[in-house]
Amino acid sequence: MPEITMYIVQGSPDSGQVEREYQVPYRDGMSLLDALLWIRENRDPTLSVRYSCRSANACKECSASIDGKVGYLCNTKAHEGAEVHVRPIPGRQWIKDLVTELD
């Protein structure tokens, strides 16, 4: 089965940051948000990620640093065999895992 590899920064200001690696089954049309929700449902139920509209309506809740560029997880498509690095957005107050204060 095709996969994508996701490297996700997890932790909190109290516990510090660690980058964890996850292998996620790839399916056509999946977004990075879909992949993160798969991780939370199947590998790490403690993974924190904020989302709301799931349709790129600019709610900004699922914004993150994706391979060094800020973007929305809900409208960034996953690609078979890709390696993706996801981090909280630099400069925002960090709460836990990928959750930061919204602007």
Rank of each mutant, 00 (worst) to 15 (best):
V18A: 14
R40Y: 00
S52T: 12
S15T: 15
E41G: 10
A35S: 11
R54A: 02
N75C: 15
G81C: 10
Y72V: 06
Q23A: 14
N57K: 09
V84Q: 03
K96Y: 02
Q23V: 12
Q17K: 15
G16A: 02
Y22I: 02
I39E: 07
C62P: 03
Y22F: 15
T76D: 05
R92E: 05
W38L: 07
L37A: 10
D28V: 13
H79C: 02
D28E: 15
V86C: 02
C74H: 00
I4Q: 03
L47Y: 09
L73A: 04
A78D: 09
L32C: 06
R50M: 14
D103E: 13
W94F: 00
I66P: 03
V24W: 00
T46M: 12
G91Y: 07
T5W: 01
L98S: 06
S52C: 10
S31W: 05
C53K: 08
L98E: 10
W38C: 09
E83R: 06
Y26A: 04
Q10S: 08
I95G: 03
S12L: 03
E21G: 05
I95T: 00
S65C: 04
Q23D: 08
K77M: 10
K77F: 02
D44Y: 03
G81T: 13
K69S: 14
A64M: 13
L36F: 02
A58N: 11
V70L: 05
D34W: 05
V99A: 09
K69E: 15
N57L: 14
D34S: 08
G11F: 03
D67Q: 00
Y7P: 02
M30A: 05
P13S: 06
D34M: 01
L32Q: 02
R92C: 08
R54C: 05
A58R: 14
R50I: 04
V24M: 00
D67S: 01
D28W: 12
K69G: 01
A56G: 15
P13Q: 11
P88K: 08
V49M: 06
R27W: 04
R20I: 01
A35N: 05
K96A: 10
E83I: 06
P13F: 13
N57I: 10
A58Y: 14
G29E: 13
I4S: 08
A82R: 04
C53W: 09
P45S: 10
R54G: 03
S12D: 08
H85A: 13
L98V: 10
S63H: 11
T76M: 06
H79V: 09
I89F: 09
E3Y: 15
